[in-house]
Computed example of a mutant assay.
Amino acid sequence: MDSNFIYLDYNATTPVDERVLDEMLPFFSTYYANPAGLHLLSLTMQDTIEEATEEIASAFRIRSKNIIYTSGATEGINLAIKGFQFSVKKHIVSIVTEHKAVLEACVFMERLGFEVSYLEVDEKGMLDLNALTGIIRQDTVLVCAMLANNETGVILPIKEISEIAHQHNVFVLCDATQAVGKMRIDLCDLAVDFLVFSAHKFYGPKGVGGLYISDRAKQDIFPLMHGGGQQQGWRGGTLNTAGIIGMAAALRIALDELQWDQQRVTHLRDALETELLDITGAYRNGHSPQRLYNTTNICFPGALSEQLIIRLKTISVSSGSACSAVTSRPSHVLKAMGLSDLHALSSIRFSLGRFTTEAEIAQTLEQVKQQVRKLRNLA
């Protein structure tokens, strides 16, 4: 990327770490055999993939047989939700602040005759666990709850959500796309039935992700992609060997450097946030203690985010999720937290990352303050 650009949109995607790329490169040109073959090169690829899978599984404290490779988190979400389309139980519970991949998959299930209940959140983006308990029914089959929100960084109490759901014999899907690589995730502790993640969110390649499926859940859902029987029949198609190697390397590096990264990025995020909140009328969206260390979402009343993003020119920030980063529609997440349309349309997400520098934060502060002032004067 041009050195003149400042990238503060790490929740949308991250650059591939050079160390990850180095591990991937041989699998494009030297070790390129299809891992589904029977000859020696294919068997070597199978062993390599198994080693990478064991490494990923170990990071989550699960068995490798419970990991299904996908093209990314969206595919994993669709498999987990739509896999219940033949279920006898026809009720799904979701949260209004879930990612569009979850919400749209739920809309699809409604077309198939399912009923979906959507739980509200408070002004901090937090869920009322009593409301969850009250909304679960005898015919509830699945609860969908993200670990960390992509727009605000708010972290939900997934362990408690799982406990409530399992008391009623209900499965839990956890969208951990934003959390993996930014926090340690122990699936023995969280005890969810499905968990999705995507490599490009933690400095790995695009086009590869994973879906964890518990042994218990495997008995109740059906695969969506049929083919050559790969991945225990759960997803047909040739495995993305280079992508899997890259994802394993990216996760290893992210967890090895997590403490250092957390301390450094938290310091930068707090410095950015503190000064931005000094702008008259500005306020933060989302629960402060329970959120990702790299994310801040701030409303600048009187300065529309679409106009502010355009004016910032060389600074990459967003007004919502990567699926609708610049849009005339207010964020469904911020609206659910009680913001008016105007304030939701005046909010900016800043998401920092591994390569963010103090100099970039200083330049961002100068530019944001200047452009917010100019927009307010124009208004």
Rank of each mutant, 00 (worst) to 15 (best):
T327Y: 04
Q167L: 10
A362V: 13
S29M: 08
R311H: 09
K82V: 02
K313R: 10
G204I: 06
A179R: 05
L292I: 13
D139E: 14
Y283S: 09
M247R: 07
H166I: 00
T53Q: 10
F194A: 00
G37D: 11
R284K: 15
E54D: 10
P26F: 02
F5K: 15
M146F: 12
D189F: 06
E163K: 08
I348N: 05
W260H: 13
G113H: 05
L190D: 01
Q85K: 13
F114S: 05
D122G: 12
L308W: 09
G228R: 13
E55L: 07
T357E: 09
N150C: 11
K100F: 10
I348E: 07
L339P: 02
Q85D: 11
T177P: 01
T44G: 02
S87N: 14
P157E: 05
D22H: 10
S328D: 08
E275Q: 12
A325F: 14
G236K: 04
V93S: 01
I56S: 04
H287D: 15
A59I: 01
N240Y: 15
S64P: 04
Y10N: 14
Q290L: 15
T133G: 07
F300H: 11
I245T: 11
W260R: 11
E306Q: 11
G37P: 03
E110Y: 04
A199N: 03
Q367N: 10
A336F: 08
Q167G: 14
L132P: 02
